[in-house]
Computed example of a mutant assay.
Amino acid sequence: MSQSLCPVPADQRPINEYRDLKASWFFEWSSWPRPRFQRRLLLLWGMAWFVSGPVAIASFSLKEAPFHTFLAAALGANVLLLLILLRLVLGWAYVGDRLQRPTVVYEETGWYDGQEWQKPEPELAQDRLIYTYELRPILQRLQVTLLALVIFSLGLALGWALL
């Protein structure tokens, strides 16, 4: 966005919000190539087991109900991973929405003085291209992953109910 014509503070401009999100340590890995992204998900799921596993073992007798213990730990790990994925989806979706909108809502000095700025056509076209070719594939991957994890969690819950 043009520095001289755009009244929106630099940190509230959608293109800069996108760049900041893409460069942040938490959000950047969702834009990595698929195998690396999947390894990160497995690592996070494994780390979540360090929390959910001991809780499941303390909640159920490992000797008397090993399947319940395993399913409880897996569901606990899934919940933690679901929360992480949900945060990623919401963060990317927020910035994606701001990139696609023809106007930018911003605050000049605080929460009480909201303003709205109409993007010029070239800037709107640029923002929408960034959304279409860079951000939307990330968002779609995250949504599919989130859906797969929800289905997996439902399968674990069904397994629990059938035991």
Rank of each mutant, 00 (worst) to 15 (best):
residue 130 I to G: 05
residue 122 P to G: 07
residue 100 Q to M: 12
residue 138 I to V: 15
residue 124 L to M: 10
residue 50 F to L: 15
residue 135 L to A: 08
residue 101 R to K: 15
residue 139 L to V: 06
residue 47 M to L: 15
residue 68 H to D: 10
residue 108 E to D: 14
residue 87 R to K: 12
residue 98 R to C: 12
residue 135 L to C: 09
residue 46 G to T: 10
residue 118 Q to F: 00
residue 45 W to V: 03
residue 96 G to C: 06
residue 81 L to Q: 02
residue 91 G to F: 04
residue 98 R to G: 05
residue 69 T to W: 04
residue 36 R to F: 12
residue 101 R to I: 01
residue 43 L to K: 11
residue 75 L to R: 06
residue 35 P to T: 04
residue 56 A to N: 03
residue 106 Y to E: 11
residue 58 A to N: 10
residue 115 Q to L: 15
residue 88 L to G: 09
residue 115 Q to D: 14
residue 133 Y to V: 10
residue 73 A to G: 12
residue 92 W to Q: 10
residue 142 L to C: 08
residue 67 F to A: 03
residue 39 R to G: 00
residue 71 L to C: 06
residue 110 G to E: 10
residue 116 E to R: 13
residue 99 L to V: 05
residue 57 I to S: 11
residue 52 S to N: 03
residue 118 Q to N: 01
residue 60 F to T: 01
residue 66 P to N: 05
residue 120 P to N: 04
residue 72 A to Q: 03
residue 93 A to V: 02
residue 68 H to I: 00
residue 37 F to V: 05
residue 123 E to C: 06
residue 119 K to I: 01
residue 119 K to H: 01
residue 73 A to Q: 03
residue 96 G to T: 09
residue 72 A to E: 00
residue 75 L to M: 13
residue 95 V to M: 08
residue 113 D to Q: 13
residue 44 L to S: 12
residue 56 A to V: 03
residue 66 P to T: 00
residue 141 R to Y: 07
residue 45 W to I: 01
